[in-house]
């Protein structure tokens, strides 16, 4: 009897937690199709808010900006990150510990502090707040995740692979290009997807380093929620949710395949 009760309690507990995690998201999704403007009362299925989204020029621009930024920042983060991971893994150099420390700092530093720090940097350099400031910031906060992922993957590879390439006459560049990058393949893709998600979702750092010349989606949503909840936010959240899901599942499948 005791065993059965325990099982029931365990299952109920898990169920409640998943309910807690999913109900709010599902409510947003469901009500993005609700005709009603203000209340939570269901007044019928409608794609009205999606139609409105499509016609909202500002949101479309911000979405395009976010996608572009995400694409460019995660690509450059993966490029830089693979160089950095190889440096940390393979080379002995002055200040290796400091570099390690900086990667670790980037992982643990609160986004808020990083946002402010970059804002101060861009003020002093000076870099005008807009696309470039966002690009630098996003690449930077994606970097540690790329480095950690790739560094771990490099650690799993047989180090004799690198040595034997060198032994056969490969220069460091040939080794990087023909051995390391192909072997990192799936890890490169999953760290790119991770970076892209991080970039698309970021609010806090972007909040400090964005400028009016280059509006991005999360900040647009932030402003919309602040000024009052509109069903349009439900619709756009649903779309983002869908894409996130696609990305997470895709990244998981790629990792599983490896």
């Amino acid at each position: 009897m005791i065993k059965i009760n325990e099982k029931i309690i365990t299952n109920c507990f898990s169920f409640l937690i998943y309910a807690f995690l999913y109900i709010p998201i599902l409510v947003v999704v469901v009500y993005s199709f609700n005709k009603s403007q203000f209340s939570m009362i269901w007044e019928g299925f409608s794609l009205k808010w999606y139609r409105e989204l499509i016609n909202d020029h500002e949101i479309l621009t911000a979405t395009w900006h976010s996608l572009l930024l995400g694409f460019l920042a995660s690509t450059s983060a993966v490029l830089l990150g693979s160089l950095a991971a190889v440096c940390i893994k393979r080379y002995k150099f002055q200040g290796r510990k400091l570099l390690h420390g900086l990667v670790f700092t980037l992982v643990v530093i609160p986004d808020l502090v990083m946002g402010i720090a970059l804002l101060i940097l861009f003020h002093f350099l000076p870099v005008p707040l807009g696309f470039w400031s966002l690009f630098f910031a996003h690449t930077t906060f994606c970097l540690p995740f790329v480095i950690v992922t790739l560094h771990a993957r490099l650690g799993q590879l047989d180090k004799h692979l690198f040595e034997s390439a060198k032994d056969l006459g490969a220069s460091e560049f040939v080794l990087f290009r023909q051995i390391i990058l192909p072997l990192l393949g799936p890890a490169l893709i999953s760290s790119w997807l991770l970076s892209f998600t991080l970039s698309i979702d970021d609010v806090i750092i972007s909040y400090f380093v964005a400028g009016p010349s280059f509006e991005i989606l999360p900040l647009k949503i932030y402003a919309m929620v602040r000024t009052g909840v509109t069903p349009e936010v439900n619709a756009i959240s649903t779309i983002i949710l869908g894409f996130t899901l696609l990305f997470v599942v895709g990244a998981t499948l790629i990792r599983r395949k490896k």
Binding site: V28, D201, P218
Partner: peptide
């Protein structure tokens, strides 16, 4: 997997979802 998915959903959207839950209506 079910635990990971909300982990990846934009926290801004999750904060917003909580507003929807707790509103007067």
């Amino acid at each position: 997997m079910l635990l990971m998915i909300p982990f990846w959903v934009s926290s801004l959207i999750r904060a917003y979802a909580m507003v929807i839950m707790l509103k007067a209506q």
